[in-house]
Write a protein that binds this DNA or RNA. Structure first.
Lengths: 251, 251
DNA sequence: TTCACTGCTTTAGTCTGACAATTGAAACGG
DNA sequence: CCGTTTCAATTGTCAGACTAAAGCAGTGAA
């Protein structure tokens, strides 16, 4: 329960917190590609941490492709093309800092490419155990709705099992990155405006196609599901004022 | 000039080298998920580096999801499902250490899902400049063949431009990760047995479809290209014996 | 003038040794 | 038997010094 999903600033060591703070500044454009960061000495002083801790934070950012460090020249923010956009942390940082609509569109475009095929593969390869788990998850979803934490957890279980059933580790990593980020915003959207549409029928259709080992039907059903999710996202109200909210749809 | 392309073990600082070494040990199964690494003190002594440098290496691995560190308990290798398999470095480490056929199959499966759609999007969105660049790349490819570094560079240019034309940053990151890794197998294949099939016609077909803004044709052509690449990889002989060499470069 | 060299200087990179914080497990007490 | 406390092992953080890489300016020669 609870699991605040590491939202604000807890349980991370200080190098982790620093990495997150700097990461957010970078992906949100406060520090722009090509710019130099402060020198290690200046930065560590300003953040009131030791140089070692600051360096570990920078190593994390470098591991995710956001910066490169070179002696004498400094640590420079890399061009966007080099960022590891599918890294779960990077994605989280992006979502944490008011992503532009454009970014959300691109993400859904990716989902539209990947998830239907994943569903098709799952239809071919799923075990009966996996179908049982998905059935149970769908039932829980129906019972609790996406308005509750239990319901969202069930949704996540549904998709996780589907990905597992696709039996492709790369597909699995990829889509889990995406759905993690997307689900992150789901709760918020729920808060802004309760779900306008019942997501259960879409999921049920996907499940039945997979249960009956029908790849084409699974692909079609999943495509529809993602399309509708995108539609919901598009029609979600813009954040009222000042602070913008992120929108999105249940994975 | 020269540009050794950071193939073996140069130009990386020692934390980078350490991270690579440990990373390879992990993805290759020498250190298995669930196992504990040595304590920082022991490890840094054994590798003859300072604890600080060792810690920076571990931070890099943690940033890629390969390990987690906790006080009092130590640094533990995470289960495979948590690894960031699409991180370029992780992918490189996997390829550097005798990936099983299964892994290659899964990767091609992913390409088969993603690249045809990317081609379709490119057909819709490409600029005329991009078509020109791809045409030029294809010409260079024809001239030099994939047996040469120039030819492989041209191949890379072709695919990079295609991805750029798809105008989706996530797709771009994703496929560039893949193609980097795949290019390694290309070079190896070249070495073991010169190319059995001329790749130029496949590429030309993709290019023409994109040039004439025909998404469906682009999708079909790209699907064929990936299928044939997979076929070539499958029929490539397994590594002869004993220690396999690492390959590098090209796309 | 131009160009190659040579040092200077700035910056990240590395090392050392100490201390703090966390937390699993053992020791203790009820 | 169970909850609580204490302990100890391990990562986390800190400070300061030194090393190595690399841009840059100054120098000298062609």
């Amino acid at each position: 329960m609870a699991r605040p999903a590491s939202s604000s600033s807890e349980c991370l060591r200080i190098h982790g917190k620093l990495a997150r703070d700097l990461g957010v500044q970078i992906v949100s454009g406060v520090i722009r590609p090509g710019e130099l960061l402060e020198t290690e000495l200046a930065a560590s002083e300003r953040h009131q941490v030791s140089r070692a801790a600051y360096r570990e934070a920078v190593r994390i950012l470098a591991a995710k492709g956001l910066v490169v460090s070179r002696p004498k020249v400094g640590t420079r923010v890399t061009p966007r093309e080099q960022w590891h956009l599918l890294d779960p942390d990077v994605l989280a940082w992006i979502f944490q800092s008011d992503p532009e609509d454009q970014v959300l569109e691109a993400l859904f475009e990716l989902r539209m490419v990947v998830e239907p095929e994943a569903a098709a593969l799952a239809a071919e390869r799923r075990t009966s155990d996996q179908v049982a788990i998905m059935r149970e998850a769908l039932r829980d979803m129906t019972e609790h709705t996406l308005g509750t934490a239990e319901g969202r957890a069930a949704d996540q279980r549904f998709h996780t099992t589907l990905l597992l059933a696709s039996a492709n580790p790369f597909l699995r990593t990829l889509t889990s990155s995406i759905s993690t980020a997307v689900s992150w915003t789901t709760a918020l959207k729920q808060r802004v405006r309760p779900l306008v549409r019942d997501p259960v029928p879409d999921h049920a259709e996907v499940l039945e196609a997979i249960a009956s080992r029908d790849p084409d039907a699974a692909r079609r059903a999943m495509r529809k599901l993602v399309e509708l999710a995108l539609f919901d996202t598009r029609t979600a109200p813009q954040a009222p004022s000042g602070r913008r909210s992120k929108r999105s749809k249940a994975a």
